[in-house]
Design a protein around this nucleic acid. Structure first.
Lengths: 236, 236
DNA sequence: GTCCCGTTTTGCGCTATCGCAAACTGCGAG
DNA sequence: CTCGCAGTTTGCGATAGCGCAAAACGGGAC
């Protein structure tokens, strides 16, 4: 089993208030694994045998309907946990997790959770905190879907991605993992066609530069303006 | 301070794994209060000074945009907690809570939470569980909003309400608190007009009986059918 | 260098749903 | 008993965005 360097993860919110010795003990229960780009880490509906901490790369969590439509629940960034089905009392994963880039994760067996929480109650408190934050984000997303139109939602989604996983370069901010029009559509509740049209529009206004699975916000401020435009109809 | 009867709340999920003595101690920190119909329990953006457990009545949690549009986040049923801003690390309430019926709640000062969690770690674990469940429901709602049309979403919403707070009577199942077309619209991401049209339609098919702030599912099964109808177009 | 395939772009008609406006209704106040 | 108002119903355009189809594009494999 690979030995994990505690210094890499000690600062994560998940381990706030956990002593170095305790952290060491916690990490001893984990193993690490590498998932190549596009591989599945777990599938919706499968037995939740493990939970995960992303060390490196990016993971897309997506939920599928019985009829096959998908939505992207979120993109997991390094340092975040995912697959916490057990913490919330679910025996099966409610979504599918796919590595969108070569990714490295820590893996704990679900069965270790109760013991860990018992020994280190701050784990539960910290997890509660992050799950709570996600719940709020989720509510915000619902609010947006209910009250804003597609263009604004796409603007918001891109800004969030840029904030979460943006790589700053001189032309602007690049979202530093592969993401397709389809993905953005599934984050915002629309179709890839509409997303494509919107991005084309922005591109011709010089707001973004985009290509195959690649998006650069050339003028983040311009997009902020679009995102905040609510109900008032400015000229083109 | 009113003495709260432990036997009324001992069975709640929140207190699972808590000994009677501990429960007693926990309840000693709480006070109870009564909120009349239509009164506000807390407002979005206000300092999160307390968290709540609903004992009796019904509470609507709603989120408002800067421009005034609202969505209903959820309806709180007796036995459920709400206003848990602190548990998730927020200093202010992210939503407004209104009693939709005369309601009785237990109130703890937010400041008591860290102490309680420290003394009774299962509180954190239990809360994590419920927050996690809400997160999943939230994702399901997003999925629905992305993939289903309004009629299906309304059908689902009513079925959930019936399940959560339905009173069985011989004509069918009545949602046992006042709820308007507007409220349903705000739960499903549509307008009261559209909800009204849909309910009118169902009423003429004998699926529901509805009036002012009152809805009875006459034929729950018929509505289930509507809710499950996905993409396939059955004849009227 | 060329070919192939997944992604993206774009055109066009369609329709579910909104938005506005106006009329209606039933409950509660007095 | 009557009035007033909040909640509801309904009609009628207007339209954002979908769905389908087809073409264009670009990057990697060989």
């Amino acid at each position: 089993m690979a030995k994990v360097d505690t210094s890499l993860v000690a600062h994560l919110p998940l381990f706030a208030g956990v002593t170095p010795e305790a952290l060491d003990e916690i990490l001893r229960e984990a193993r690490s694994a590498r998932y190549p780009k596009s591989s599945a880490i777990f599938e919706q509906g499968a037995d939740a045998q493990s939970f995960f901490l992303l060390l490196h790369g990016h993971v897309r969590a997506a939920k599928t309907t019985p009829t096959g439509e998908q939505i992207v629940v979120r993109y997991v960034a390094p340092g975040e946990t995912f697959g916490l089905a057990m913490a919330i009392g679910a025996a099966r994963y409610p979504a599918t997790a796919i590595a969108v880039d070569d990714s490295v994760v820590l893996i704990w067996p679900t069965s270790a959770w109760p013991r860990l929480v018992e020994r280190f109650p701050s784990l539960a408190a910290n997890t509660l905190q992050t799950v709570g934050t996600r719940l709020q984000e989720s509510h915000t997303r619902i609010l947006e879907m209910s009250t804003q139109q597609v263009e604004q939602r796409v603007a918001h989604a891109l800004l969030r991605l840029a904030k979460q996983s943006g790589k700053k370069l001189d032309q602007g901010i690049e979202i530093d993992f592969p993401i397709s029009r389809q993905d953005i559509a599934q984050m915002t509740g629309t179709t890839l066609h509409t997303v494509s049209r919107i991005l084309s529009g922005w591109e011709s206004q010089g707001l973004v530069e985009s290509g195959r699975q690649r998006i650069i916000l050339r003028d983040p401020h311009g997009i902020v303006v679009l995102a905040e435009r609510n109900a008032d109809n400015g000229a083109v």
